[in-house]
Simulated assay, not measured.
Amino acid sequence: MSDNNSALTPYAQSLGIAIHGDEDGTPVLTVDFSAQIEGRPGAFHGGATSGLLETAGYAVLRKTLDREGRNPQLKPINITVQFLSTGKQKTTYAKGRITRLGRRNANVSVEAWQDDRDRPIATAIMNILMADREG
């Protein structure tokens, strides 16, 4: 587990989202199942799954921008989540991938999985505006 969890938003921390590690320069995030994120009995709440996906998307984008020496304010244009199967009572992982990085916009795809990375439980597509920060 990384000590860099303080870089996560208070919302992500409240859900129990943590930085699990790094794969080829891309953060992998996790959240353990708990009563706090339970939706219907025994299942991950869709909002918690969406929060994990969104957090993983911003994590890969922020890490890439940091490497480039850029620090824009990130503003979501839209986020589309597809729920593919029910999240069970176990750890869920998520990892994002930048599909397009421009000067003012970024497109990121994210997958969340549990036991088998090739069988995601949810995916997301994120379109993000990267606005200049005002002095």
Rank of each mutant, 00 (worst) to 15 (best):
M1A: 15
S2Y: 04
S2F: 11
D3Y: 10
N4Y: 11
L8V: 09
T9S: 15
Y11D: 03
A12V: 05
G16Y: 10
I17E: 00
A18P: 02
G21H: 06
P27G: 08
V31F: 05
D32W: 07
S34M: 11
S34L: 14
A35R: 14
I37A: 05
G39W: 10
A43Y: 12
A43F: 14
A43M: 14
G47Y: 04
G51C: 07
L52R: 00
L52W: 00
A56D: 00
Y58S: 02
Y58K: 05
A59D: 02
R62W: 04
R62C: 04
K63C: 11
E68W: 09
E68N: 12
G69L: 13
G69Q: 09
N71M: 12
Q73P: 04
L74T: 06
P76V: 14
P76I: 15
N78V: 03
I79C: 05
F83I: 06
L84V: 06
S85C: 11
S85P: 07
S85N: 12
G87H: 03
K90Q: 15
T92M: 15
K95V: 06
R97W: 12
L101E: 03
L101P: 06
V110N: 01
V110W: 00
E111P: 01
W113V: 01
W113E: 00
R119A: 12
P120I: 05
A122E: 02
T123P: 02
A124Y: 01
I125R: 03
A131F: 08
A131P: 04
D132A: 15
R133K: 15
